[in-house]
Amino acid sequence: MIDFGNIIYWVVVFLMMTGLYLVLASGNLIKKVVGLNIFQSSVFILYISLGKIAGGTAPIFAEGIERYANPLPHVLILTAIVVGVATTAVALALAVRIYAVYGSVEEADIEKQEVDAD
């Protein structure tokens, strides 16, 4: 029986494993980047869920608001998302350069060309 109170964590773990699997098992560089993104997204969700309180509102200091979400994890994860976007950009740029050199983004093809070159 799954504890539904913790379902968010199950989602996190599922995404994390999916992402990691994709990164490790896929031979296609673009798919690896996709996998990395899924993997990172799981952590984003983890952080966002940390700050959320049931029934809490946005942390605005105003009349009548008593329960509000902790803003700090959200701020943190904003930074991490930026970092993730930058990483993705670098990775895709590399993939473009690799495609220009080898004419492929499949690891197997690239490796074969390198072995032939030696």
Partner: peptide, 30 residues
């Protein structure tokens, strides 16, 4: 041009490492 392949592997590993670190940080903060 092999540098590109080397960087790509490094990037993948490095990002996984950094994300692991981030998970740990999140748990400690929680």
């Amino acid at each position: 041009h092999r540098a590109l392949n080397a960087v790509f592997s490094y990037l993948v590993m490095g990002t996984i490492g950094a994300t692991f670190f981030l998970i740990g940080v999140g748990l400690l903060y929680a």
